[in-house]
Design a binder for these strands. Structure first.
Length: 273
DNA sequence: CACTCACCCTGTGCGC
DNA sequence: TGCGCACAGGGTGAGT
C-alpha cells in the first residue's frame, strides 16, 4: 500500500496527534511481528514511556519512545490509526497502544506483511544505515547526476531500479509508473542506455510526483488512510497507474499494462520512449 | 555481484 | 449464487 508520500503523511499525523503522550497500556494481539525479540520485553519497554518524534526514511517509520525507537514498516496493507480509547477496533488489528488523554494508537494489517520492531535509539543512525537504503529523494540530494551514478551501469530496467530500495528509497509501484510517464521514459529501458537529460527528467519528476502526492494527502486505493481516517486524493490524479485501455492524457495513444517483475507496469507506448 | 522468482498473508473481483 | 483463479501498493532469501 503505502509508498513514501503515504508514509510521510502518517509521520506528520503521528507528530501532530500523539507526540508527547504517555503510553499507559500495550496490547499485542499477534506476536508474530516480533520475530527475534520477546513479547514481554517489547511490552515492558513501551509501557509507561512517552512518545517522542516520528520520522521516516524511505518507507520505514521511526517513532522515538523512551530509550527506544519503534520501527514500523507498513508493507502492503499496514494502517496506523488514532482512535478514541473506547472506539471499536478494526478487524486485523494486531497492536494497540493506549495513550494518556483517552487516545489509542492502533496498528492493523490484513496481510500481516508489515513489520514492527523495537530498536535502540542510541546508535539509531547506525541502525538506519544498516538497512542499506539508497538515497531518499525528498531527504537527500537527488538529481540527474546522482541517479546516473546509481543507474547508468546497471542492466536492469529503470523501473526496477526505482523500485529497488537499496538504490532509491521510497518509490513503489504506483509512483514509479507516474514518474516514468511524466518523464517520458519507457519503464523497460535499461539503466545502461538512458541519456543524462533523461536521468535529469526522471530525478526531477521523482521529487515532484512524491511532493505532489504528499500535498494531496497520499493515494487511497484500498486500505490506505491517514492516521485520522481521512482518505487521500492523489489517486484522482493518476495518469497511467490502473488506467490500462484508456486514452493517454498527453498523446491520446492507448495506455498498456504489462507484467514486470511479478507486478503490473503501466505506461503509454506513444510518448514513453 | 546482479538479477529473477517464489513466498509471506488475506481479501476482492472477475469469468464461468 | 457459488467456485476457483488471478491479482493487489513490498521486501526477503534462495537459486541461477
Amino acid at each position: 500500500m503505502p509508498e513514501l508520500p503515504e508514509v510521510q503523511i502518517v509521520v506528520n499525523g503521528l507528530n501532530q496527534f500523539v507526540c508527547g503522550l504517555r503510553i499507559e497500556e500495550v496490547l499485542l494481539h499477534w506476536p508474530g511481528y516480533l520475530s527475534g525479540s520477546s513479547q514481554k520485553k517489547f511490552i515492558k519497554a513501551l509501557s509507561g514511556s512517552k512518545i517522542g518524534r516520528a520520522s521516516r526514511r524511505g518507507k520505514y517509520i521511526f517513532i522515538e519512545i523512551g530509550q527506544h525507537t519503534l520501527q514500523l514498516h507498513l508493507r502492503m496493507t499496514g494502517v496506523l490509526r488514532i482512535r478514541e480509547m473506547d472506539e471499536e477496533m478494526a478487524p486485523h488489528t494486531h497492536l494497540q497502544l493506549f495513550l494518556a488523554g483517552g487516545k489509542r494508537l492502533d496498528f492493523s494489517d490484513v496481510r500481516k506483511f508489515g513489520r514492527v520492531q523495537l530498536v535502540d535509539s542510541e546508535p539509531l543512525r547506525e541502525h538506519v544505515l544498516s538497512l542499506g537504503l539508497g538515497p531518499d529523494p525528498l531527504l537527500d540530494e537527488f538529481d540527474g547526476e546522482r541517479l546516473a551514478e546509481i543507474a547508468s551501469h546497471r542492466s536492469k530496467s529503470i523501473r526496477n531500479i526505482l523500485l529497488d530500495q537499496k538504490l532509491v528509497a521510497g518509490v513503489g509501484n504506483i509512483y514509479a509508473a507516474e514518474i516514468l510517464f511524466r518523464a517520458g521514459v519507457s519503464p523497460q529501458r535499461s539503466g545502461f542506455n538512458i541519456e543524462p537529460d533523461e536521468f535529469e527528467r526522471i530525478a526531477r519528476e521523482t521529487r515532484e510526483v512524491l511532493s505532489a502526492a504528499i500535498v494531496k494527502g497520499g493515494s487511497s486505493i484500498n486500505d490506505y488512510l491517514q492516521v485520522s481516517g481521512q482518505q487521500g486524493e492523489m489517486q484522482n490524479y493518476f495518469q497511467v497507474y490502473g488506467r490500462q485501455g484508456s486514452e493517454c492524457p498527453r498523446c491520446g495513444d492507448t495506455i498498456l499494462k504489462m507484467k514486470d517483475g511479478g507486478r503490473g507496469s503501466f505506461y503509454c507506448p506513444g510518448c514513453q520512449k
